[in-house]
Design a protein around this nucleic acid. Structure first.
Lengths: 241, 241
DNA sequence: CGTTTTTTTGATCTTCATCAAGAGGTGTGG
DNA sequence: CCACACCTCTTGATGAAGATCAAAAAAACG
């Protein structure tokens, strides 16, 4: 399950931008590459996070599960995102759990190695802050969407953004089960299903997994003001959705 | 309006924990102390944030205001909190605006001075990350409360936490207008008013400004699982509510 | 195929927003 | 000092959004 990570994969990570090569190399040695099946619980809520995990491929959801098994999604992370950077660095007990939604390859390292490297490298610390900032920004958007938009508007906005993020690809797809999408948007699967019908009446269709933007202007109009004025958050090293 | 800040006020800030004194001193020189009346708009949404602002005294709300004037609160910041650290350091355009809710004293410095000091001091960068992490944690909680709790439960949980944070004080108070509390909790003032009646039926009363916890066990039971297992977030340098 | 899981659909109920109006408080100017 | 505008907050009536429960339909999967 765990093996040495490829050095080139790691050096490409935004986390190592501008980091002194001595620091970077010693860290890179210590990384392990892991692979998990869809549905694996990587971090349980209440756990003390002791490893820094970086997604190499796949999608991971951050969520909370209550006693009755209801699930409350917070964020979806994708390739190059760091899992709960703050919890790892500050040895916090996580409020939320992390679960893979697809087969996921992960790069992992003991958090205390990173912590001590951060003492030596302001650049590494800076990059960690950048990652955390990006996730804060996503969280703020999530709060604004939850309080300011209806379910259908959130569904439309999410799918439109997802399509735009895949704009290289021929036909954009929804890479996760609908039940996870519902959780991410703070609604029930039933409401998601009904919202998709409303969204379809406003120019955006979901055919199987494929996202079909039939009338971009109309769906943008329907979803309301865009909270993502920049095309994407990549300068901030966030790939979360 | 603006004058030299007191050095001792600044050195006490968590931001300067463990920071090399040469770096700390040069920064501290550059701080200005400002005072604002309640209701002052410190940062407008869409603004490019170029100053790092730290609250010395008072309360500041982070929120979004839409075209129709509806207000969507995200977080309340209080003494020692840093305003939008990520936006200041990365020169982002802020998604949200910041407005004083009480008379507020602020410590301010040009963001690029901090940015360049962060290049020299991993400790300072580390502290900035800590602050950002704490705000991320608050945001996550906010998301979980919005999706997992009813309005009345959020009201009860907020007031109970507010009372606990003031536990030194003889009688805890609500330091902000109710309309701001409503915005912070993602509800309308009308719903807040009605929720307060429900909460009062479960052991927590608001008499004027005073928060009266009449039956702690009952109100805790009513609000559901505590998302703040640690007494407070001070180790993370968050004072936000 | 049969079995299990996911998704959809329908009916109903709860929660909360909205609109409208009134009550209490505060400040201003005559 | 009062009258008046102007707050904030409360209360009531109504409506819309979304949750819940139950069951059917559609996919996924061994």
């Amino acid at each position: 399950m765990s093996l040495r990570a490829q050095t080139e994969d790691l050096l490409d990570l935004p986390l190592f931008d501008g980091v002194e090569s001595s620091v970077a190399e010693s860290l890179i040695e210590a990384f392990a590459a892991c692979q998990y099946r869809a549905g694996t619980l990587l971090i349980e809520s209440g756990d003390c996070v002791s490893k820094l995990q970086i997604i190499h491929r796949g999608i991971v959801e951050l969520c909370r599960v209550d006693q009755e098994g209801h699930q409350f999604g917070v964020l979806l992370l994708s390739a190059k995102d760091v899992l709960l950077p703050a919890a790892a660095i500050f040895e916090e007990r996580s409020l939320i759990c992390a679960r893979t939604l697809t087969t996921t390859r992960m790069l992992e390292i003991e958090a205390d190695l990173v912590r001590s490297a951060m003492k030596r490298s302001a650049a590494l610390t800076f990059n960690m802050m950048k990652v955390t900032s990006g996730q804060w920004r996503m969280a703020v958007r999530n709060i604004l969407e939850l309080t300011g938009r209806t379910a259908a508007e959130r569904v439309g906005a999410f799918l439109l953004r997802l399509a735009d993020l895949q704009d290289g690809a021929a036909s954009p797809v929804l890479p996760i089960p609908k039940r996870s999408l519902a959780s991410r948007l703070g609604i029930t699967p039933e409401t998601l299903s009904r919202s998709l019908q409303i969204v379809a009446d406003h120019g955006l269709h979901l055919r199987g997994r494929a996202i079909v933007v039939r009338d971009r202007e109309r769906i943008k109009e329907f979803c309301g003001p865009d909270l993502y004025p920049d095309r994407n958050e990549h300068p901030l090293n966030v790939f979360a959705i």
